[in-house]
Nucleic acid binder design. Structure first.
Lengths: 124, 124
DNA sequence: CTGTATCCCACGCGATACTG
DNA sequence: CAGTATCGCGTGGGATACAG
């Protein structure tokens, strides 16, 4: 009843929300979140689990997530340097929305690909 | 096991999914979706409802959403040109995931802003 | 092992002007 | 009214090299 034809217009997307989503749903965040939800990971663990990411992007994304309180950076030992990244309680709350989103993507991908083909054929 | 959450590792984020989310959660799509979920809109209606968007970006976003089968472009009359944009059934299915996401953002925004302040102070 | 530092390019997006 | 056409800029992100 709430999803079909509920009172519309409940959610306006404000600039701060937009910015937050950009920081938290960017190119690599979802993959990182996915890994850290299963277990704490070292930096190079993440690199192995997400082979396509570069050092630079991984560092940047982790910093951004850390700044937003989504992940936690834990220094394990200083010589040689060892660092572990963990999901925070706040980070865990992000899992459900993301799952719903990915579920949607998985469910409707075929339909979307059909739409794309139709569009690409029609508009030439 | 615990609070009715799914077994881990259910959702790997693949490249096609990533691309889809980029096309559907980009800077202006959520605002457009929001408007079109309430009523069909003409091009300039949307410009009025979303004052910050430029013509170019609005056109580009609408085309992208149309290609993915999220919105529908309806030619109302040809002279003078009149066009109406409508949400599709597929587009409506996107509303729930997006609402969950925006709900999350609204709920946790205070906590996130605290995290940011702490981070910005600690790391200088 | 865990990062920084550069360089560089693609592209998302804004600004502005023009068109059927 | 509903777009296209151009130009330009900021920045996300890859490649590579270096550092504590």
């Amino acid at each position: 009843m709430d999803t079909a034809d509920a009172p519309e217009g409940e959610l306006k997307v404000s600039a701060p929300h937009r910015e937050l989503l950009d920081q938290v749903l960017d190119k690599w965040s979802l993959s990182i979140l996915n890994e850290l939800c299963e277990r704490p990971c070292r930096f190079n663990d993440l690199r192995r689990c997400i082979p396509a990411v570069t050092q630079k992007s991984l560092t940047a994304t982790l910093r951004r997530l850390e700044r937003n309180g989504i992940v936690e950076r834990v220094l394990l030992s200083s010589r040689p340097v060892a660092v572990e990244y963990r999901i925070t309680p706040l980070g865990k709350t992000l899992r459900h929305p993301v799952d719903v989103l990915l579920d949607w993507a998985a469910t409707h991908m075929p339909e979307i690909q059909r739409a794309r083909r139709t569009f690409d054929l029609t508009e030439t």
